[in-house]
Simulated scan of single mutants.
Amino acid sequence: MSQSIPFVDYLVLGDSPHLVANECVTCGARFFDRRNACAGCFGTEFRKVDVATEGEVRAFTIVSLAAPGIPVPFVSATVDCGGTSVRANLINVEATPDAVHVGMKVRFALQSVGTDEAGTEAVNFGFEPQR
């Protein structure tokens, strides 16, 4: 039986896919990687919090040169998800200045990034335009 696994530790798959951040209990700063201390206040206590699945593009770039095997062009963006800044690719959108803009409303989306010989699929996330 094949299965799907998340490409990153902070991606939750299942019926309601979403991201989970580590939130500083002291100041509320959010991080996706493991932390020993908060970069904002040096607090050392964190809690897991769900990140909103809808957001707004705050900045983006169209990538036209990448490592071998990476299809270009693609859009890399910073998305504000209810106050949490998420860096991700925009998917299911043309990688052109006419198709993407700052302030664009987007929603969380999943994308397969490959399947191994045993049938295990790696799943990553991105954001797509809200329609």
Results as ranks from 00 to 15, higher is better:
28 G>W: 04
28 G>P: 09
28 G>A: 13
28 G>C: 13
28 G>Q: 09
28 G>R: 05
28 G>D: 10
29 A>C: 13
29 A>Q: 10
29 A>W: 02
29 A>F: 08
29 A>K: 04
30 R>F: 05
31 F>Y: 05
31 F>R: 00
31 F>E: 02
31 F>H: 03
31 F>P: 00
32 F>R: 02
32 F>K: 01
32 F>Q: 01
32 F>W: 02
32 F>L: 08
32 F>V: 08
33 D>Y: 03
33 D>W: 01
33 D>I: 02
34 R>W: 04
34 R>K: 04
35 R>D: 12
35 R>K: 12
35 R>Y: 06
35 R>P: 00
36 N>G: 13
36 N>T: 09
36 N>R: 06
36 N>V: 11
37 A>N: 08
37 A>P: 00
38 C>Y: 06
38 C>T: 07
38 C>A: 15
39 A>M: 11
39 A>P: 02
39 A>W: 04
39 A>F: 07
39 A>E: 08
40 G>L: 08
40 G>T: 05
40 G>M: 08
40 G>W: 00
40 G>P: 00
41 C>W: 03
41 C>E: 04
41 C>A: 11
41 C>G: 03
41 C>L: 10
42 F>W: 12
43 G>Q: 04
43 G>Y: 01
43 G>I: 10
43 G>C: 07
43 G>A: 11
45 E>I: 14
45 E>W: 06
45 E>P: 02
46 F>P: 03
46 F>H: 02
46 F>G: 05
47 R>D: 05
47 R>Q: 12
47 R>L: 14
47 R>I: 13
47 R>Y: 04
48 K>T: 05
48 K>Y: 04
48 K>V: 08
48 K>P: 03
49 V>P: 01
49 V>H: 05
49 V>L: 12
50 D>P: 13
50 D>S: 15
50 D>Y: 10
51 V>D: 04
51 V>G: 03
51 V>T: 07
51 V>E: 04
52 A>R: 05
52 A>S: 13
52 A>P: 03
52 A>D: 13
52 A>E: 15
53 T>R: 08
54 E>S: 12
54 E>W: 02
54 E>M: 09
54 E>P: 02
56 E>G: 09
56 E>I: 14
57 V>A: 07
57 V>G: 04
58 R>C: 13
58 R>S: 10
58 R>T: 11
58 R>P: 00
58 R>F: 08
58 R>E: 12
59 A>F: 10
59 A>D: 12
59 A>H: 07
60 F>C: 08
61 T>C: 14
61 T>L: 12
61 T>Q: 09
61 T>M: 11
62 I>D: 01
62 I>L: 07
62 I>M: 06
63 V>C: 08
63 V>T: 10
63 V>R: 01
64 S>G: 13
64 S>A: 15
64 S>K: 10
64 S>E: 15
64 S>W: 05
65 L>R: 11
65 L>N: 11
65 L>W: 06
65 L>A: 14
